[in-house]
């Protein structure tokens, strides 16, 4: 029945159909959540049922998986990776740390609120979320894509001044100048 529903959407919204059932994630595995990704992708939970397959390069991917806490150093590369991805692009944030700092909320070097720097489409709370929770998050993202509410990339373009201001405050002016130098980035 579900297979039938999946095939039927082709006739009504072909482009949404493509984006919904073909999420190619690129993992940014800096935190402890990285250990939950292999069982999700491989035989135990098999994320390829939902059309997901891991990608190696941000150009090919359309889903950014942030698995765990982000430091000032890694946030730079996350922003660069995100800006290299092609739109429509989606972000799933994994675990409590990107939400409010989690275990590391007093750390001088950890980012407490990811929402200030990047638009996130789906949050998955937990320390750590199990693969089931991750697949629930993916299903939630799929519903949002179908409804048209997964608009993180649009928010990023509309409120780019806000995001740039926050990025500058945390990462310094030098980072933004480096971003501008790389012309092929966006």
């Amino acid at each position: 029945m579900r297979e039938h529903k999946r095939a039927k959407m082709w006739t009504t919204h072909p482009y949404k159909w493509g984006q919904k059932y073909s999420l190619w994630p690129i993992h940014f595995c800096t935190g402890c959540g990285a250990i939950e990704i292999p069982p999700t992708m491989l035989a135990p939970y098999d994320a390829s049922r939902f059309g997901m397959g891991p990608m190696a390069s941000p150009r090919q991917a359309n889903l950014l998986l942030l698995t765990g806490y982000l430091t000032r150093k890694t946030l730079k590369y996350v922003i660069r990776t995100y800006e290299q991805m092609l739109t429509p692009r989606y972000v799933i944030s994994f675990g409590s740390c990107p939400i409010d700092g989690g275990l590391y909320y007093t750390s001088y070097n950890t980012i407490n609120h990811l929402e200030w720097y990047l638009p996130v489409d789906v949050w998955i709370a937990g320390c750590m979320p199990r693969p089931e929770a991750f697949l629930m998050g993916v299903n939630r993202l799929m519903e949002e894509i179908e409804n048209g509410t997964a608009d993180g990339y649009k928010r990023y373009e509309e409120n780019i001044d806000y995001y740039r201001r926050n990025q500058e405050r945390t990462l310094g002016k030098k980072f933004l100048e480096e971003l501008k130098q790389v012309e092929w980035l966006t």
Binding site: E3, A7, Y15, G18, S22, A43, S48, R49, G51, G53
Partner: peptide, 17 residues
């Protein structure tokens, strides 16, 4: 791999995407 695997028309979805 003892997985269920994507639907057999997955390449079409990928190309449309």
């Amino acid at each position: 791999d003892r997985r269920y695997g994507p639907p057999i028309y997955q390449p079409v979805i990928d190309l449309v995407k």
